[in-house]
Design a protein around this nucleic acid. Structure first.
Length: 549
RNA sequence: UGGGUUAUGGUGUAACGGCAGCACUACAGAUUUUGAUUCUGUCUGUCUAGGUUCGAAUCCUAGUAACCCAACCA
């Protein structure tokens, strides 16, 4: 008997519906194709797909493409690609624009029932008459047109007789409602614009509120799950379904994802791209799905993250460290180990034959010692500059004058000397090695505290490594004063020329590695046959850095 | 000054009138040829004030705070 895992509020709703006789459930993921999917969408995708999956239902992909001026096919393709990459398979692929004919008929039905009217007022006049949250609105002078006149005008709107903004169709609800959305909302507006799917067929398009719920209904969506800012729309959602007498889909809302050190709104992301703060939608510092993919996050790590953050109705600000934890958790199992020196410092082994070299076994997977690769060893190596301290601080396990360390997969060395240039910069470390301390056959009897990574200087290959850090310096950007661009982290990207093992030359774009002691990295698409480019996905957890501060 | 929504450790999320649990973080220790991983342990919480009850995070009353709503965006 295993412990029952507690249900989230949506699962509770669904189980109640099922116990009340609901046979199957149907959900949908409804992106607007006007931008790239981000990690917040990943949460919504996970919620919709996993709920349907758990209760034996299906999930549709439906593009909410009711605004032709902002929507593009490029976005449709990227969205589909990202959902597939996350590992989800939608049942049917729909577009709100598939329903434009039906929606138009629905509008006619509303007019016939005396529940919609054509308004000639200007945008400003409509806003003026709408009132404010604390004062009631006023009826439009066109509110009581006859059904016949409304029908005639509406079909003329469709025929293109009027210019943009000249007329709108409004639902006739209640101009004094405390819910602003119920004050005769606009349901159709004229836009003489080319639509990415319907071309120039239409010159008037339904608004969100007159498309979304009806689309849900047409697809027999049982649970229409959206974010909290749509709560005030729910009465309207229900009103249209009731008046139209169509399948009763129901809307449920959850709190959207917020991440520390991250902006999430499409508007701000678009601004980051357009104003050149990042190189594009898939710049690895962006919170988009395509950026996480490029940075080296796996679908599994994102699933784990979505699982861990849960779903509820309260505002939240998730520590981006949790996402990093999920990446490490997954990559630790998957990424082959390799030795890469990011900031090279020459180490010369004084008692090793200059003209000689040997091939050692490098561990690819600490959980499986038999999984090895060839690693070249010679008298001149590169080690990490930060692994040597001229005057070691207390509890320093790495190299320092007179100190010994293990070279991973190789020998123990003892530092005998170091050389500086005229400017006082370290240029070389001189060590002697202990021949009988060879990895795997160590009979030296010496125990050292520290192990460092290295590459053989004459075998090493140059590679570009992009060290990414968070894009912003402020934890809660929404709550911070000023503009979000005031908080851009100036060192969110540092490019270094690293020394890599030649074994890495076979690496494929997207392949994951752990650079020993440095972090998880993945091969970037900018790599060429001349030079590999690696992105740092995430650093390793480092308790030493924290302690020594 | 209107309406809606939400309040549980530093951050998330459970507990549905009956021992406030889990995860991340932080801290301490063990192991370690990655100061990683793994393992063990520790700290930290029910928005406030009343009330109902043998018993309240949970029910009631009154406050407080945060977020959303006045695009021909979604």
């Amino acid at each position: 008997m295993s412990e029952e895992k507690s249900l989230n509020f949506l699962e509770e709703i669904i189980e109640k519906d099922i116990s009340n006789g609901l046979k199957t459930i149907q959900t949908r993921f409804p992106p607007e194709p006007n931008g790239y999917l981000h990690i917040g969408h990943a949460k919504a995708i996970t919620v919709n797909f996993s709920l349907a999956d758990k209760y034996g239902g299906k999930t549709n992909l439906r593009f909410d493409d009711t605004n032709p001026v902002t929507e593009e096919t490029e976005y449709v393709e990227s969205i589909k690609n990202d959902i597939k990459w996350l590992g989800y398979n939608w049942d049917a692929e729909f577009y709100a624009s598939d329903y434009f004919d039906t929606l138009f008929e629905y509008a006619v039905k509303l007019i016939n029932k005396g529940l919609a009217y054509v308004d000639d007022s200007t945008s400003e006049e409509i806003a003026e008459l709408k009132g404010t949250p604390t004062t009631v609105g006023t009826d439009s002078p066109f509110r009581n047109r006859s059904v016949e006149e409304n029908l005639k005008l509406f079909s003329e709107m469709k025929e293109g007789k009027y210019k943009d903004g000249e007329k709108v169709l409004r639902a006739k609800i209640d101009m004094s409602s405390p819910n602003m959305l119920l004050r005769d909302p606009i349901i159709y507006r004229i836009k003489h614009a080319h639509h990415h799917r319907t071309g120039n067929k239409w010159c008037l398009y339904p608004m969100y509120d007159f498309a979304h719920g009806q689309s849900d209904s047409i697809e027999n969506i049982t649970h229409s799950i959206c974010t909290l800012e749509f709560v005030p729309h729910r009465p309207l959602y229900d009103w249209f379904i009731e008046k139209l007498e169509i399948f009763p889909s129901h809307q449920y809302e959850f709190a959207r994802l917020n991440l520390t050190y991250t902006v999430m709104s499409k508007r701000k992301l678009l601004q980051l791209v357009n104003e050149g703060f990042v190189s594009g939608w898939d710049d690895p510092r962006m919170p988009t799905i395509s950026a996480f993919r490029r940075r080296g996050y796996t679908p599994e790590s994102i699933h784990m993250f979505c699982e861990k953050i849960g779903v509820a109705r309260r505002e939240n600000l998730i520590d981006v460290g949790l996402l990093e934890f999920c990446a490490r958790e997954d990559l630790n199992k998957k990424a082959a180990r390799t030795m890469v020196v990011l900031d090279p410092l020459k180490l010369i082994i004084t008692n090793y034959d200059k003209n000689s070299s040997e091939i050692l076994k490098g561990e690819n997977d600490p959980a499986n010692p038999d999984d090895t690769r060839d690693v070249h060893f010679s008298s001149e190596l590169f080690i990490e500059r930060e692994d040597f301290m001229e005057i070691p601080e207390k509890k320093w396990f790495r190299l320092a004058p007179g100190k010994m360390v293990r070279l991973k997969n190789a020998y123990i060395v003892e530092c005998e000397n170091f050389i500086k240039d005229d400017a006082g910069n370290l240029t070389e470390i001189h060590c002697r090695y202990i021949p009988e301390s060879k990895s795997g056959s160590d009979v030296s009897g010496i125990n050292v505290k520290g192990t460092i990574h290295w590459v053989s200087a004459k075998h090493a290959v140059d590679a570009e490594v992009r060290l990414y850090d968070r894009l912003f310096t402020e934890e809660n950007i929404a709550a911070a004063e000023g503009h979000f661009s005031d908080y851009i982290n100036p060192s969110s990207l540092i490019e270094v020329n690293a020394k890599i093992e030649p074994a890495l030359l076979n690496a494929k774009v997207g392949e994951h590695f752990q650079f020993l002691r440095k972090g998880y990295f993945c091969v970037d698409k900018d790599s060429t046959s001349q030079k590999l480019v690696f992105n740092r996905t995430v650093t390793l957890k480092d308790t030493w850095v924290k302690k020594s501060k």
